Amino acid sequence: MHHPNVLEVRGLQVELQIEKEYIPLLKPLDLTLGRGQVLGLVGESGSGKSITCYAILRLLNPRSMRIEGSVQLNGRELSTLRAEDMRRIRGKDIGHIMQNPMNAFTPVFTIGSQFIETLRTHSKISKAQAKEQAMAALADMNLPDPVRIMNCYAHQLSGGMLQRVMIAIAMCLQPSLLIADEPTTALDVVNQLQVLRELERLRSEKGTSILLISHDLGVIAQLADEVAVMKTGEIVEQAGVHELFDQPQHEYTRMLLQARLHSRKDA
Rank of each mutant, 00 (worst) to 15 (best):
P28H: 08
V9E: 14
F105K: 03
Y54E: 11
E243A: 13
G40Q: 09
V165A: 04
G91P: 08
G43T: 07
T118K: 05
L138I: 02
G159H: 03
I220R: 05
A259W: 07
K92Y: 11
A55V: 14
S209Q: 03
S47C: 14
G159D: 04
Q99G: 09
M65P: 11
E15C: 15
K27G: 11
F109D: 06
R201A: 10
P4R: 06
A170G: 05
G34A: 13
S263Q: 03
E200M: 11
S209T: 01
G160V: 02
E132H: 05
C152G: 11
T52P: 13
A139W: 04
I125S: 05
S113K: 05
G48S: 12
G95A: 12
E15S: 15
T185H: 06
F105V: 06
Y54R: 15
A224S: 07
R260I: 11
T184H: 05
M255L: 15
L12F: 04
A104D: 03
E182R: 04
R88F: 15
P28Y: 02
P183S: 09
C53G: 15
A137F: 05
E182G: 03
P146E: 04
H122I: 02
S79D: 08
M98V: 14
L73G: 06
N61A: 10
H215N: 05
L217S: 02
Q13A: 15
V227F: 07
A221V: 04
L217M: 05
S126H: 05
S50G: 12
H122R: 01
A104Q: 04
L178Q: 00
E251G: 10
A104W: 03
K92V: 07
L26I: 09
S204M: 12
T208G: 12
L41P: 08
L256A: 08
I56V: 14
S79F: 08
S70W: 07
G69M: 14
V38E: 06
G159W: 01
F105M: 12
I51Q: 08
E132N: 09
P175Y: 02
R35S: 15
L217D: 04
E205N: 10
H242T: 10
Q72V: 14
Q156K: 07
M65L: 14
P28K: 07
E21Y: 06
P4Y: 02
T52M: 13
L173M: 09
M166C: 10
A170N: 06
E44Y: 09
V229F: 06
V71H: 08
E237G: 08
I97E: 05
H122N: 03
A180N: 06
L187E: 04
R35G: 14
V227I: 12
L26F: 15
I94G: 14
A186V: 01
E84C: 13
D246T: 13
P144W: 01
R82G: 15
G207K: 09
G240D: 12
G159S: 06
S47V: 08
A224C: 10
Q249W: 02
D181F: 01
L199I: 07
S158E: 04
T253Y: 05
K20L: 13
Q247E: 13
I116C: 11
L173K: 04
H242A: 10
I169E: 03
V9Y: 07
Q99W: 00
I89C: 13
V14M: 15
L187N: 04
